[in-house]
Design a protein around this nucleic acid. Structure first.
Length: 375
DNA sequence: AATTCGTGGCT
DNA sequence: TAGCCAAGAAT
């Protein structure tokens, strides 16, 4: 078996050396820049990452600049990329490298693994790509490729099977070619050994693949189906003041934390519930359910704007947008501390997730803002 | 082990 | 089109 694994490793690394896609992070040997690419690439497509990676490194060209940056600006560079905990963990990792390793990126896999946001895969990727160490980097590509090559019957979603694959892959790594092999396995999965239509006739490991030999390529990898997103009805409250500014909340935890959001709450009622909105805004000094339409109340309901749907990995928001005017009634109470008023022309400069940008576009509070392109 | 955490492209 | 999926990690 080991001879077989070793032959696969030599074949894949040689294939990678002979030719591969030119990706920008393959033109550097700076561990920091490679780290940024690896974090961005987690569960994210290459084409999407390219533009973000270039822009990010223009603003944070080295690990010290990222460590010392304003977190809001880091989130801003990440806006639209998703999985925002990655951005906050990346900055924490940068700060840890600066503080505990004097800005010198740690080479020991055990040290790399301790950095926030870096798990088994990213540790292997950095160790092998940036430092040439023989450490397995098992991502979704490698799970698929390996499960096909070896006809692995286990569910690749389970930690046990994944550890088993790591052991197999570790025995594939050719001496002195850890980087080419690591990237070769992923390149193979991304360009040849694809999920639904593998091009086996072009595969360098054609003769070594047990799935190919038995015509069972599409049966692998085995994985259990994910449960569909849970739907909910969200009442989204677009609140502007008399000077046209919009009220946003800095989200502190859970979904979309670290980004600015439009005040909203889950509801199954037909009309927006004034009590729920008051509670959402932290306005405990006021009462009366009818208050949202009362003339002496700061919040004046202007009416229904429209609906927006947004699907997250495991949630689906069916948003109903309602418009309110916040009237300055001299001494009245204001929104809670995590709320801030923003002029419409400031919205393009702060991190706001796609779900709420859709709402802003619907309401015409923000220019359509051309989609970021890879340049 | 099972959930949580975004977004966009593709079938 | 509704679901699947992408260079996963944290809890």
């Amino acid at each position: 078996m080991k001879a077989r694994l070793s032959e696969i490793g030599l074949t894949v690394s040689a294939w990678y050396r002979a030719g591969h896609r030119a990706l920008p992070w393959r033109e550097t040997d700076d561990p920091y820049k490679i780290l940024v690419s690896e974090i961005m690439l987690q569960q994210t497509r290459v084409e999407t990452v390219i533009g973000y990676w270039k822009r990010f490194l223009e603003v944070f060209p080295d690990i010290a600049s990222l460590a010392g940056a304003d977190t809001e600006q880091v989130m801003n560079m990440w806006q639209g990329l998703g999985y925002y905990a990655r951005a906050r963990n990346l900055q924490k990792a940068a700060q840890m490298v600066v503080r505990e390793y004097h800005g010198r990126f740690p080479e020991l896999p055990a040290d790399i693994r301790r950095l926030p946001g870096i798990g088994a895969y990213t540790t292997g990727a950095l160790a092998s790509i940036a430092f040439g160490l023989p450490v397995p980097a098992v991502d979704g590509n490698v799970l698929r490729v390996t499960s096909r090559l070896l006809l692995l019957e286990g569910d690749v979603g389970t930690p046990g099977v994944k550890r088993g694959v790591e052991a197999f892959v570790a025995d594939m790594i050719p001496t002195g070619s850890a980087s080419d092999f690591c990237q070769g396995m992923m390149e193979l999965g991304a360009t040849i050994c694809t999920p639904t239509s593998p091009v086996c006739s072009s595969c360098p490991a054609d003769k070594l693949c047990l799935a190919r030999k038995t015509g069972r390529q599409l049966e692998f990898p085995h994985k259990q189906a994910k449960s569909p997103p849970v739907e909910s009805r969200q009442i989204v409250c677009l609140i502007r003041d008399e000077s046209g500014r919009i009220l946003l909340q800095n989200r502190k935890e859970g979904l979309l934390s670290g980004l600015w959001g439009i005040p909203h709450f889950e509801s199954d009622n037909d009309e927006p519930d004034a009590d729920a909105l008051m509670e959402r805004l932290g306005l405990t000094g006021l009462d009366a359910p009818e208050a949202a339409c009362d003339r002496i109340h700061p919040l004046f309901a202007e009416g229904f704007v429209g609906t927006v749907t947004h699907v997250f990995t495991h949630r689906k928001w069916n948003m109903e947008i309602w418009s309110f005017l916040w009237r300055d009634l001299s001494d009245g109470p204001g929104p809670a501390e995590d709320f801030t008023w923003f002029a419409p022309d400031r919205l393009s400069g702060i991190p706001i997730p796609e779900a709420f940008r859709k709402v802003l576009r619907l309401a015409g509070k923000q220019p359509p803002e051309e989609k970021r392109k890879n340049t």
